[in-house]
Amino acid sequence: MRLPIYQIDAFTSAVFSGNPAAVVPLEAWLPAAQMQAIAAENNLSETAFAVPPGDADGGAWGLRWFTPEVEVDLCGHATLATAHLIMNILQPGKERVVFSTQKAGLLTVTRGEEGRLTLDFPTRAPQVPDTVHPGLVTALGGPAPAAILAARDYLVVYDHAADVRALTPDAAGLMGIDRFAVIVTAPGDEPGVDFVSRFFAPAKGVLEDPVTGSAHCTLIPYWAERLGVDRLSARQVSRRGGALACRLVGDRVHISGDAVLFLEGHIHI
């Protein structure tokens, strides 16, 4: 079997930055184990698989995402990458794509000003958790945080962006946490940046994700409430780095960014 594959850097306008995602367009779903094996072979934080709409799908593409270890319920950068592929290569000129997902419902991506793409995702507002994993703060290795909240992921809030940048987490210590992943965040320390973040999910095969769209489903409602605004500019301060324009719209978030094609080829299985 010969399958097309594309690697697209998301939340950036230049290759070698942002978050690389593999995208494999299919005619029909492969067995989950086979898609998981492809994702493991790619060894990127996410590989997306997309199936074109059928007669009963209302125009929505099917979309699933896999880390090297597990299938995930929601992924932002690989959705952005898949939309970029559809709008620029598979169906050039298309201005809007709807995706049907198994656990996140319908997701929409639209092309806006200067070609920038905007994801329409559900919010995952953080709350004070009943308990916090006892090894969390030690495994992160930084100063005492200002707050620890949680949704799908832990949200660990620091006072200073420098604290977030300086973290060197113990991957083994984070393997046993009782949440999907850990988001760390702090106020921005550069002009025009409202907040910074990083994202760690070693148990899911992603030690540190370069730019994480799904994390902003939690970050945006937190910072919108804290800062009293509904539009925010975010930066993920991983080694590769990435920029996101954010907006809170009721129980949805709009996450905007650029994407650029790095590689195209074929898989032989």
Rank of each mutant, 00 (worst) to 15 (best):
M1I: 08
P4M: 02
A10T: 10
T12D: 05
S13R: 14
V15P: 04
V15I: 14
V23F: 04
L26M: 12
P31M: 00
Q34D: 15
A40K: 09
E41S: 08
N43D: 13
S45Q: 04
E46W: 03
E46D: 10
T47L: 01
T47G: 03
F49M: 06
A56D: 15
G59K: 13
A60W: 10
A60T: 09
R64F: 00
W65T: 10
P68Q: 02
E69Y: 00
G76P: 09
H77D: 12
T79M: 09
L80A: 06
A81F: 05
T82L: 08
T82Y: 09
A83R: 09
L85R: 11
M87F: 07
N88Y: 05
I89C: 13
I89V: 15
Q91D: 14
K94Q: 14
K94R: 15
K94A: 07
E95G: 12
V98P: 02
V98I: 13
S100W: 01
Q102N: 14
L106V: 11
L107C: 03
L107W: 02
T110E: 12
E113D: 15
F121A: 05
P122A: 02
P122K: 01
R124Q: 11
A125D: 13
Q127A: 15
Q127V: 15
L136C: 02
V137S: 08
P145G: 03
P145T: 09
A146W: 10
A150W: 05
V156D: 05
V156P: 10
D159N: 12
H160E: 14
T168F: 07
P169D: 10
A171N: 10
M175C: 11
I177S: 00
F180G: 06
A181H: 11
G188H: 08
G188K: 02
P191Q: 14
G192Q: 11
V193M: 10
R198C: 06
F200G: 00
K204L: 15
G205F: 09
V206D: 06
L207M: 12
E208C: 06
D209M: 08
C217D: 04
I220M: 11
I220H: 07
Y222Q: 06
V229A: 14
R231S: 04
L232A: 12
G241L: 08
A243M: 14
A245I: 12
R252S: 12
I255T: 02
A259R: 04
L263P: 01
L263W: 07
I267L: 15
H268W: 12
I269V: 14
